[in-house]
Nucleic acid binder design. Structure first.
Lengths: 182, 182
DNA sequence: TTAAAACATGTAATTTATTACACGTTTTAA
DNA sequence: TTAAAACGTGTAATAAATTACATGTTTTAA
């Protein structure tokens, strides 16, 4: 096995909250979960097929408009069991974060490198934007204590992502300040 | 093209510091760079072959002991050019951090979930260990200001990884404390 | 009303990554 | 001295992920 096929569990987890189409699932990776996982529809549709073959999900066909068929997928009982066992299982492997900028940084030998400043500034812009975006999402999605408790895991990971970006931005600022003046 | 083939640049970057064998490169992913990228030898040897075919690296054969042949790879001038352009190019894409624990957390609905506490505690242990490990590495690899300046990029990313783990541990502790008492 | 954007579902080709298979040498410590 | 660990280099099989190809419907806004 080449990896652990986490996509299947993500799909099960999302379907456990509510029935969704392949298209809905695809969109979920642009917002909700996109912070922590990426997947394209070309990966999702075949995975849905496999999950259904294995009995973890089923689908019903609904008609949108005149004739557009939508496949609305539901999780089954054994699907819920599989999801539950994945969550309950330990998670002992900390995957390396594949951060291309950090990778490039590694190959910079000296703090006098003329490229350094622009590189850090670019990332500062990107991560500041992301931080702002996450702050807005947290505020709009979880405005009240009640809303936070209602979907606790989601709240936690958004808050985690926010804190992570906050650290990243601070570190970049600090790194920029520490750069030699000329 | 399926991705950007960053592995080739990592190899070039490492060879730019000093000539290395495939075996040396493989080991680099266990220590140095393993914090930010992973690769197995089965990926590295074919990549070395391709880089050599394209003229970005060359190798010389040295004999270790009686007859063990080692291929010591060197970066070429055009290899250095390629490496330089990769570093100089912008890095506008922030890749999603594929964190399985965070993924699982997303599917936890309520803060009363009985699995939550053990899950957070496990991660706390793992990340605390990692934090300790990084602190020791930073202290041993970069004990002096001079050593930090001598290999600035490496210093920066180690320090970044350390801060990241520190945040993670703090967040986990905070999350654990916020859990309802029973 | 009509064109663009969004909705909706798939497959094919290619690349990247992991695990497994395969073989042999040198060094180190019991 | 001898067995295990580390050194050293490769290929094969498989799985995961990205990009590209392919097609059609419905909604929305100009």
């Amino acid at each position: 096995m080449a990896q652990k096929n986490k996509l299947q569990f993500i799909i099960l987890g999302l379907l456990n909250q509510q029935p969704l189409t392949g298209y809905d699932l695809t969109k979920a990776f642009d917002t909700e979960i996109g912070e922590f996982w990426q997947a394209q529809h070309s990966q999702i549709y075949p995975q849905l097929k496999r999950l259904e073959e294995q009995g973890y999900i089923t689908h019903e066909i609904t008609i949108s408009g005149e004739k557009l068929e939508k496949k609305l997928y539901h999780i089954t009982a054994i699907g819920q069991t599989l999801l539950g066992s994945w969550i309950s299982d330990g998670t002992p492997d900390l995957t390396a974060t594949k951060d291309e900028f950090i990778l490039k940084l590694y190959f910079i030998q000296t703090n006098r490198d003329p490229r350094l400043k622009a590189m850090v500034q670019e990332q500062l812009q990107l991560h500041t934007d992301k931080l702002t975006h996450l702050q807005q999402r947290l505020a709009t999605v979880f405005p009240t204590k009640a809303s936070q408790t209602a979907n606790y895991g989601h709240y936690l990971i958004l808050q985690h992502a926010l804190g992570r970006e906050d650290y990243y931005v601070n570190w970049l600022n600090q790194t920029l300040s520490a750069l030699p003046k000329r």
